[in-house]
């Protein structure tokens, strides 16, 4: 179990590191090039109500949960 946890942590750290090195190799996107990124539909969670509802539905029918972030409250809907 401890090994699995360590492995998962390691994967996350690698992902972060990979991102940073990719960044240095890449030309960064300038502020005036952010027209598309600034759109509401380009947000990581474009529809929060949908996200909230679906995560509750799947939480009550599947064993895995979360991953997108930390919420405030427990769902209490097992």
């Amino acid at each position: 179990m401890v090994f699995r946890k360590l492995l998962a942590c390691l994967m996350a750290v690698c992902a972060l590191g990979g991102c940073a090195s990719m960044q240095s190799a890449m030309q960064s996107v300038q502020p005036w090039e952010k027209d598309q990124l600034a759109k509401e539909e380009m947000q990581l969670v474009p529809d929060r109500v949908e996200e909230f509802f679906d995560s509750r539905v799947y939480f009550s029918r599947e064993a895995a949960f979360g991953g997108k972030g930390v919420g405030g409250g427990g769902c209490g809907c097992n």
Partner: peptide, 12 residues
């Protein structure tokens, strides 16, 4: 890139 956004998340 101009139209590409990536997110990586780890939750314990």
């Amino acid at each position: 890139a101009r139209g590409t956004l990536l997110q990586l998340n780890f939750v314990h």
